[in-house]
């Protein structure tokens, strides 16, 4: 059974994510220890709250995390966990991220209510093991005010529209990331978690 390290760098509900990954066939370790990241088969970077606070809390783990990614270990970033992978975010001024995906995190337009809260569809733009057997236009649960704007579109697996068309699933080699919460997105969300665990097993 593949071991997935879920990074616990702050506060928030990790219980649903843990259950979702367990149902998908992973052994889950909720951790804040660099050595656990090294020992695991995959890393999950969840995230709620503010970008600046999260990147600060993540800093003791960032070396281990970056090394794991260089080693080719699959990583799944969820919501703020996706945003932390980017070069920088404009939430609360300009803040540097992990720069594993080149691009910026920008505020959703003023023409729509923020936060973007609720169920919205994903338009699958290209095939990827992460969306295997996931129907186009599946509904996923979103809750965010900022959205990703990658420098290149080649890693965009799915888009979602809310005031603007933004990438809602991104993949780059062993990096996978969703702007929505798969662990809160009922059956289609669980399918994504299952696919991630399947990728880890390969």
């Amino acid at each position: 059974m593949p071991r997935a390290a879920v990074i616990n760098y702050g506060v928030g509900n990790l219980r649903s994510l843990q259950r979702g990954l367990e149902k998908s066939g992973a052994k889950v370790l909720i951790t804040y220890s660099p050595s656990d990241l090294a020992k695991s088969d995959a890393i999950v970077l969840p995230g709620v709250g503010a970008f600046a606070e999260a990147i600060k809390n993540l800093s003791p783990l960032s070396d281990a995390l970056l090394q794991s990614v260089r080693d080719g270990k699959p990583l799944l970033g969820i919501c703020l966990g996706l945003q932390l992978l980017f070069t920088r975010s404009y939430e609360g001024g300009s803040k540097n991220g992990l720069n594993l995906i080149q691009g910026e995190i920008v505020k959703l337009p003023d023409t729509v209510k923020t936060p973007h809260i609720g169920w919205n569809t994903i338009q699958i733009a290209k095939p990827n093991p992460l969306v295997e057997n996931v129907q186009n236009n599946s509904f996923m649960y979103f809750v965010h005010t900022y959205s990703p704007k990658p420098s290149e579109q080649s890693g965009v697996i799915a888009y979602t529209e809310y005031g603007v068309k933004f990438p809602s699933i991104i993949a780059k080699k062993n990096l996978f990331a969703t702007q929505f919460h798969p662990e809160k997105s009922s059956k289609p969300g669980l399918a994504i978690l299952k696919n991630f665990v399947k990728i880890v097993k390969r």
Binding site: N13, R15, G20, Y141, S185
Partner: peptide, 28 residues
């Protein structure tokens, strides 16, 4: 949280940050 995979909110009697943290850590 162990049984469902849609979001849920808990309200009523919340007095401080500890109450909130406990609820979020419990899966709310």
């Amino acid at each position: 949280a162990d049984m469902i995979s849609i979001p849920f909110t808990v309200g009523g009697g919340i007095r401080n940050l500890t109450d909130i943290r406990n609820l979020l850590n419990s899966g709310a």
